[in-house]
Simulated scan of single mutants.
Amino acid sequence: MTVAAAPARAGRRRLLVVCAALAVGALATWGGARPTWFSVTVPTVRGDALATATGTQVQPVPTALALLAVAGIAATVAVSGAARRVLGGLLALVAVATVWAVVATLVSPPAPARLAQLAGLTVTPGAVGEVSGAAAPVLTLAGAVLVGAAGVLLALRENGMPRLGARYDAPTAQRRPRQTDPDRTAWEDLDAGRDPTVGPTPGTAPGTGPEEIDDRPGRGGGEGAV
C-alpha cells in the first residue's frame, strides 16, 4: 500500500510546488512593478524637478503576468490532463515574454522627455538629463522566472497531480446498486412456479424450497408416488 501511495504523494507535492511558485512569482512580479524604475532630473520653467516612473507606467506586461499567475492557481487545481498542460505552456510563454520586455526596457530606458511626461512635468525645449534606474526590476524578473518555471513543471509533469473534487466524483455505473421492481419480481416468481409471498429457506438454493417440489404422480414423493 505504501508503494502504491508514493506516486499520489509525489503528485500532491508537485501540485503544491506549482501553486506556491505561482503565488510567490505573482507577488514578486506585481510587487517589483509598483516602485520606481527610472528617475531623471529635468529643467522646467519653475526650475529643476525630479521625474520618476514606476514599472507599471513604463511596462504593463509584468502586471498582466501577475494576474495570469493568480488565475492560474485556481485553474491548476480545477482542471487536469491536456487543459493543465496547455495552461502550463501559456504561463511559460507569457513569463518568457515578460522577461524579454523587462530586459528590453532596462537596456533602452525611456527618454527624459517621456519620463517628464509620465510625471506630468513640462520641460524646457531641448532639455536633456541623465536617466537613472532602480533595483526594483530585478524583483520583477525573479518573479517572472519563477512563474515560468512553474509553467514548465505543470506542462511536463502534470501526470499524477490531483484535481480538486476528484474524490467527490459521481460513482460509476458499475458501483451503483441494481434497482429491482418488486411487482416484476413477483410475476417472475409466479412464472417460475414459486410463491412470491414465501422467502427462500435459509441455507437452501433458489428453486429447491419445499413449495417448489414437483408433486405430479411419480415425481418428488407426492401422493401418486409408487
Rank of each mutant, 00 (worst) to 15 (best):
P182K: 07
P125Y: 10
A95K: 05
A92H: 02
T105Q: 05
V147W: 09
A144Q: 00
V152Q: 14
A166Y: 06
G129P: 00
L139P: 04
A116T: 02
A144E: 05
V94L: 11
W187I: 07
P171V: 13
T185S: 15
T98F: 08
A166R: 12
T185L: 15
P196V: 11
T180K: 13
L164E: 12
G148S: 09
G133P: 00
Q179M: 11
G133C: 05
A92I: 03
L139S: 07
L141H: 02
A82D: 06
R194K: 13
A111N: 07
L121A: 09
Q179D: 08
P110T: 00
L190Q: 00
V123H: 11
L115V: 01
D195R: 14
P109I: 02
D191W: 08
A142K: 02
V198M: 11
A95V: 04
V145N: 01
V128Y: 10
T172G: 15
L141S: 05
L118I: 06
A116C: 05
N159F: 15
A136S: 15
G120V: 12
G160P: 01
Q179I: 09
L141M: 07
L121P: 03
A173V: 11
R163C: 06
A92P: 00
T185E: 10
S80V: 01
A78G: 14
A97R: 12
P196I: 07
M161N: 12
P162L: 07
D181W: 10
G165N: 09
R84P: 13
A119H: 06
T105S: 10
L93A: 13
A92W: 05
R84W: 13
P112L: 01
A78Q: 11
T76Q: 03
A113T: 09
A150Y: 00
P171C: 09
L164R: 10
V79E: 04
N159G: 15
Y168L: 11
E188M: 12
L87Y: 07
Q179N: 14
Y168A: 14
G148I: 05
T122D: 14
